[in-house]
Structure formats: structure tokens, C-alpha cells
Computed example of a mutant assay.
Amino acid sequence: MVKVLLTGGSGFIAAHAVDILLQRNHDVVFTVRSDEKGQKILSNHPGTPSSKLSYVIVEDIAQEGAFDEAVKSDPPFEAVLHTASPFHFKVTDVKKDLLDPAIIGTTTLLKAVKKNAPSVKRVAITSSFAAIINPNGHPKVYSESNWNPITQEEAVANPQNGYRASKTFAEKAAWDFVEKEKPNFDVATINPPLVLGPVVHYLNSIDNINTSNERVANLIQGKWKDGLPSSGIWIWVDVRDVALAHVKAIEVPEAGGKRFLLTAGYYSNGEIASAIKSNFPDLADKLPQDLKSDKPDDVYGIDNSRSKDVLGIKYRNLEESVIDTTKSLLAIGA
């Protein structure tokens, strides 16, 4: 059992991480931007004492010094899970809306931990497959050794580039910080691709669904009835496996200094739609007629062995994830 600071506590992955941290008997302090969000999370863990679960306000992670006070604690923190980073494409200014919060948010946190939390030994950071993928030329097999080669110039071209760059530059900044500053802690990064899985109902409405689950929402609401769009990156993972990987990354000594490509395997929008159709027959009339997969036969390979060998992750399958995602979205009004 350790005392953990969890940033971005109301996020899709973080909300599940709170549950797993408590199940595994860790003490948790999470950051949120408002008292309203903090109280909402606390009220859904009734009977959990404040010594086990509490929150601090960090209004803007892109401000220098944003985490200086949040990292101070008595008893002191021993680990940090940094999940706070924007993932959406509704942006007006790529630098201000995507790049700055991701990069400055990461470096500001690491500086604060070094300066004010000498007891912290491990910081696990939510990165992304976006920091690994090379959309202009896939290698034969993706693993943790690959980096997205995106440039500063390409980063501001559009929101999709901006998101990929934000994850790439933020993760590189973390590794550079550890190398140059030689802090009291080491770092592990979790690099998931498309993240599906149930939303935590008390933090969500169908109007503010997280970006990665939008495709399931679009299917069950009939928005893709006329045809499936391209699936995109072809690999996926369940949010509960991602949350567990974050927790394992602070529990397992060998995880320090490592990246973890976290994926359960391949998917297509057609396979997601087929899983919905066979398990929710009353939604069949919302789905398109053609449910065939658009995944290419020569799709790139993936090596997720490190996540299994070091973190012990046993991945959920696509059908289970789609069923649980669909149920959770129907419960909040999809």
C-alpha cells in the first residue's frame, strides 16, 4: 500500500484507476479542476474515509507551478499517476488547447515532484500509441522502441496532428527530464491506442462522452446507419486494463524506466458494430447493413509482450468490452 497522487481524477481512465487503487488498498488524492467534480467522485465512494480518498484543486495544468502545492502531503506521497492531458479534436488553437496542456502539464508536474515531494519513487504517465505510430510509414511490427517522428511544424497543421504531437512531445519531455535532472523518482509510461470500455456513469452524460467511445455512441444512436467510416488505427484496449496497467506501473519495481505498448489486439468498426448487433438485437435497426471489416490484410504487427511479462496484464476481448461499453452508454441516455 502506498499513498498516490492521481492527476486528472475525473477523466475516463482516471475514474477507473481510482476504483482499482482503492481495491488494492492504496491511499488516493486526486486532482480535479473544481469542487463540484471532486465532491461528485467522493459521493460515489460512500464510506471511504478522507484518509483513503480526497482531492485537491488544480485549475489549469498548463500554468507553470500548477502542481507545486498538490504534490505536498502528510503523510507524503510515494507515487504519482499522471493521467491529466487533453484528448479531443474540438480545438481552436492547437498549441494552446493541445500542446501546452500536455507538455507543460507533464514537465510542471515533474518539476513539482522533484522540488516538493522527495518521497516519490515512481511517476507513471499516460502517454499513447500516438507517440509510437508513424502514420506515414508503418514498421513491420510496432513495439515500445518506436517513436512518432512528427515535427513541430507538422504539429500545428490540424487537431489530429496536434493530438499526436502533444502525446509525443510530452512523453519525450518526461524522459528528457529524468535524464537531465536525475530526480528522486523514475518514470514509466503507458501507451494505449483506441481505448474502449464502460464510462463511469456519475461523471458522464451522452453529450460529453469521451472521444474514444464516440464511435460506439454513434453506432447505437444510429448516426452511422448509412455506412461505417474508416476504423483508423486498427488496435484497441479496454479502459479497465489501461487503468490496471497504470496501477501496476507504480507497484512493480521492474516497470521503472520503461514504456508499455498496451493493446488487446486488432479491431474494426465493423467488428464493433457486429458485437452490438449480436448482443443488443433491439439496436439492429440503428446499425448499417454492411458490417464488414475494413482492416487491411497486411496490417502492421504489434508486440505487447512487455505489458504481459512485466505488468501481468491479461487483456479483455473486444466483445466483452463492446457489451460493457454499450450498457454503460445506454445507462446514461444513449
Rank of each mutant, 00 (worst) to 15 (best):
L219P: 10
K121I: 03
P192L: 02
V237R: 08
P288S: 11
E319F: 14
I323Q: 11
F177C: 05
P193K: 01
I103N: 03
T92M: 11
E179I: 00
D226A: 15
D27A: 14
P253K: 11
Y202L: 06
I235F: 02
D60I: 10
A245G: 14
I104P: 01
E36F: 09
D324N: 14
T126F: 00
A124C: 05
A243K: 13
K180V: 13
A334Y: 01
V242F: 05
L287Y: 12
S212F: 08
S73A: 15
Y202R: 00
V178F: 09
K172Q: 15
A284P: 07
L219E: 08
N304R: 13
K258C: 08
L6N: 07
D282S: 15
G9H: 03
A243N: 10
K95F: 11
T263F: 11
T326S: 11
K95S: 07
W175H: 07
I220Q: 10
K225H: 11
S143W: 10
D238R: 05
E171Y: 03
V237E: 09
D97T: 08
W147T: 06
A165L: 09
V322P: 02
Y202W: 04
K96I: 11
S143I: 12
V237G: 05
P75F: 06
P139G: 05
A155W: 02
S212N: 03
V237N: 13
K182P: 01
G47E: 12
S127V: 00
I13W: 07
I323G: 14
F185Y: 08
Q63G: 01
P139D: 03
L262G: 00
V156H: 04
K225V: 00
E251T: 04
K295V: 04
V123T: 00
L287Q: 13
A15Y: 10
E59A: 11
A255K: 02
K167T: 12
S50T: 12
E59F: 01
F89W: 14
F185W: 09
A165G: 04
E181W: 04
V178C: 06
I250L: 10
S231I: 09
Y267E: 02
N44Y: 05
V2Q: 15
E320N: 13
L283V: 12
T108Y: 02
D207Q: 06
A284I: 05
A275E: 14
